[in-house]
Computed example of a mutant assay.
Amino acid sequence: MISPLSTHLTAAIAALAIGAGGAWWIQGQRYGLQLEQLRHQQTSAALVSTQQAVRDMAGFQKGLTDALATFQATGQRNAAAQQDLDRSLRELRTATAGMRGDFAGLPERIAGAAQPALAQYASTCTAVLQELADRGGRMAERGADIARAADSHAADAALIQDAWPKVSR
Rank of each mutant, 00 (worst) to 15 (best):
T43I: 09
A97P: 00
A104F: 04
A81H: 05
P116E: 03
G98F: 13
Y121W: 05
L5P: 07
R138G: 05
G143P: 00
R93Q: 10
L35K: 15
E131I: 06
Q115N: 10
R148A: 02
R90P: 07
L16V: 08
D162V: 02
G75T: 02
A73M: 14
E108K: 07
A133W: 14
L85F: 08
A79W: 03
E36D: 15
A69W: 03
A20R: 03
R100S: 14
W164A: 01
T7H: 14
G28Q: 15
G101K: 15
Q51D: 10
R55V: 05
P4H: 13
L92Q: 10
Q52W: 04
Q27F: 15
Y31A: 08
T96K: 14
A81R: 01
A95I: 01
Q29S: 14
V48F: 09
A14T: 07
K62P: 08
A11Q: 14
Q76T: 10
A12R: 10
P4D: 14
L35H: 15
G75Q: 00
A12N: 15
A15Y: 00
T70F: 04
W25D: 11
S168N: 12
E108I: 04
R90G: 09
A122Q: 14
Q41H: 01
L5G: 15
G19N: 10
Y31G: 03
Y121N: 13
T96P: 08
A97Y: 09
A67S: 13
A104Y: 06
S123K: 10
I26M: 13
R135E: 14
A17Y: 00
D134C: 04
H40F: 08
K166I: 06
Q120G: 14
Q130F: 11
A20K: 01
A46F: 00
L64R: 02
L89K: 05
V167A: 08
W25F: 06
R77N: 11
A111D: 12
R135A: 11
K166W: 07
D56Q: 06
L85N: 09
R90I: 07
A14Q: 10
G75E: 00
H153Y: 12
P107H: 04
Q83R: 11
E36F: 04
Q82R: 02
Q130T: 01
A140C: 02
L159C: 04
S152C: 07
E131G: 14
G19F: 12
T7D: 09
L106Q: 06
Q34H: 07
A117P: 00
V54D: 09
D102M: 11
R142Y: 00
A104W: 01
A17E: 00
D66G: 06
K166L: 06
R87I: 03
V48E: 04
N78Y: 11
R135K: 12
R93A: 10
D66C: 02
L132P: 11
A144C: 01
L85K: 09
E36L: 10
